[in-house]
Amino acid sequence: MNEKYNVSSSPHIRDRIKSSNIMLTVVIALLPATIFGIWNFRREDAWILVVVTTAAAVLAEFIWEKLMHKPVTVNDFSAVVTGLLLALNLPPTLPWWMGAVGSVFAIIVVKQLFGGLGQNFMNPALAARCFLLICFTGRMTYFVYDGVTGPTPLANLKAGEAVNTMDMLFGFTRGTIGETSVIAIMIGAMFLILMGVIDLRIPGSYIVSFVVFIVLFGGHGLDAQYITAHLCGGGLMLGAWFMATDYVTSPITSSGKIIYGICMGLLTGLFRLFGGSAEGVSYAIIISNLLVPLIEKVTLPKPFGKGGEK
């Protein structure tokens, strides 16, 4: 009995991983989608929008924290992740200053006003995307590929027209900068899973519940092509792997993560099939973000006070 009994408050187990490592891993994982997006939309000069949006997010965080006399947390890369995610969620033709406005909104209104990293109640990048979508509806739904304007594959799908699922898989189609190529996104997602940064439960339950919803209510039954088109179209993959899994705005309990995923799957299906617009991933995720505190309360594990003897 020579062991030292240290009495201290939690956390008792510490790891060498810091937020900055995790955020840096996410940035690296986003690189395939980013590089592909910039190359894919080279005629629209998408790189300017990506650079400006990311830089504006970092700058907004830096200036706000300086002004408010708070410790500057630009080094933890979270602002880079927010800015980059927002840029990947914008159509390539958007004027660069609108991207900057979105970044400032994401960082200052959604993140810093609520207390900075770890305190935001919804995903800042998605909240900013929805803000821009309501502000500049025309610009945010104006999609160009190779100089040709037209609807996104999802809109085609909704209108009952045929879509090329191979192009959607590789990303040679219209859409936002980062969402088009499922393969590039999956390369990044694999990296995140191998690094142990994200948990399969959230994207897994999200995608499975979405597919179930599409099969039940899509009107095409088990048509593989229809389901693949829905999976590859729009922001589903980007949202499921990179934005739904945000640590701050997803539940911490294992069963909570599955409930959260199902929530997003059902909402996305609902918005896509019965909503006014073809896409619904961003709204589905931020609405589920709002439900997270409730989900965590319901799925509170026993050691933290649920169940047990009365």
Binding site: P95, M98, V101, F131, I134, C135, F136, T137, R139
Partner: peptide, 11 residues
């Protein structure tokens, strides 16, 4: 100037 339509909506 491109108006920020959100400001004349509820949010």
């Amino acid at each position: 100037y491109e108006p920020f339509t959100i400001f004349i909506l509820a949010p």
